[in-house]
């Protein structure tokens, strides 16, 4: 009996030594341990054929053999596996390019527009998607620009007929919001605006703007400054400085031009800011009492402010895009950079 166990052990040792890869490992395992026909498995099954008194001794010996075989095979398996991973025969040239999954890009204007909308919603603004084809009333008259107002000159306008035009700014949100909502109002709108400018490096007949309006009791210029600062720091950078200068827009009084410290030189002076350290970024002001009244807001009780900013200018500034036409050329070499 003990001889046959030794013989088994010997046969296994020989085969085991010949294992070189997973395939030979598998055949050795099956030869000795397969559920059907494995040498050791079969040996175990044949225990029953032995005389009763020999069974315990032989049985124990077979069990020992089986566990040692299992243990050796297991260890060898781990070794082979490790070899396969760390430089075995299935070695990949990992320096070849990976699969080129396509990834597109958001247009820099649209990305910024979405960011701005998110910032404004977080500041309590309700966003409106307003018509680009607008009535003269909402674009000009209700904003204190009656026909023949000189300020209309600065906004050369595309007309469809005597009353319908392509909006020249998003400021129409002021009027729509005042007509449609009751104070307290925080409303904003972003989108395309149009001016009849030639299409060249610095002008486009179509561009993007964001306009906001806030109306409540006791709103002050200080409040306007505060909210502008929160907004601009989120759009640009928390370190920027802001500066307000008196400015003129017919729909606000007092009016303001808002500058930010140059994002390139931090105010030290560089070609982008024409050495001034400041970049003109938006127009703002306290809602003109006439504008409030025309849209049905009691100007003896409520005050408010409004501001409007060009969106296209921001990526142009940020990324140093010098020709505005690039924004509307849809050249992949441009779009893929964002």
């Amino acid at each position: 009996m003990s001889q046959s166990i030794e013989g088994l052990q010997k046969r296994f040792d020989e085969d085991f030594a010949a294992i070189t890869d997973m395939d030979t490992w598998k055949s050795v395992r099956d030869k000795f341990l397969a559920r059907e026909g494995g040498i050791i498995t079969t040996g175990m099954k044949r225990l029953r054929e032995l005389p009763k008194e020999e069974r315990p001794v032989f049985g124990q010996a077979m069990n020992r053999l089986r566990s040692s075989v299992e243990k050796q095979l297991q260890e060898r398996y781990a070794e082979l596996k490790k070899a396969a991973i760390t430089g075995g025969q299935r070695h990949l040239d990992v320096t070849r390019p990976g699969f080129p999954y396509a990834l597109g890009s958001a247009h820099p204007i649209k990305r910024l527009q979405a960011d701005i909308e998110q910032i404004l919603v977080n500041m309590g603004f309700r966003l409106f998607d307003l018509p680009e084809v607008e009535r003269d009333y909402y674009n000009f008259e209700a904003l204190n620009m009656p026909p023949n107002h000189p300020a209309r000159d600065e906004q050369d306008t595309f007309y469809f007929d005597d009353t319908m035009l392509l909006r020249t700014h998003c400021t129409s949100v002021d009027v729509h919001a005042m007509e449609g909502l009751r104070p307290p109002i925080r409303a904003a709108s972003t989108g395309k605006v149009y001016r009849r400018d030639p299409f060249d490096a610095t002008h486009s007949p179509m561009f993007y703007q964001v306009d906001v309006v806030v109306i409540d009791e006791g709103i002050t210029m200080g409040d306007m400054k505060g909210m502008l600062e929160v907004f601009l720091k989120q759009v640009f950078h928390s370190d920027i400085k802001m500066r307000l200068r008196p400015g003129f827009f017919p729909f606000v009084e007092p009016g303001a031009e808002v500058d930010i410290s140059c994002i390139f030189c931090n105010g030290a002076g560089c070609p982008t800011c024409k050495q001034s350290g400041w970049i003109e970024i938006l127009g703002a002001g306290m809602c003109h009492p006439k504008v409030l009244r025309m849209s049905g807001i009691d100007d003896s009780r409520y005050t408010g402010f409004a501001w409007g900013m060009g969106i296209d200018r921001v990526p142009m500034l940020k990324y140093g895009v010098e020709d505005i036409r690039l924004l509307f050329d849809n050249d992949l070499r441009f779009l893929e950079q964002f």
């Binding site: 500041m123 309590g124 603004f125 309700r126 307290p184 002050t220 400054k225 505060g226 600062e229 929160v230």
Partner: peptide, 13 residues
């Protein structure tokens, strides 16, 4: 520079 109390809840279009 001041901040007015916010009495509105923001909402997307």
């Amino acid at each position: 520079t001041t901040l007015p109390p916010c009495r509105n809840v923001g909402r997307y279009s």
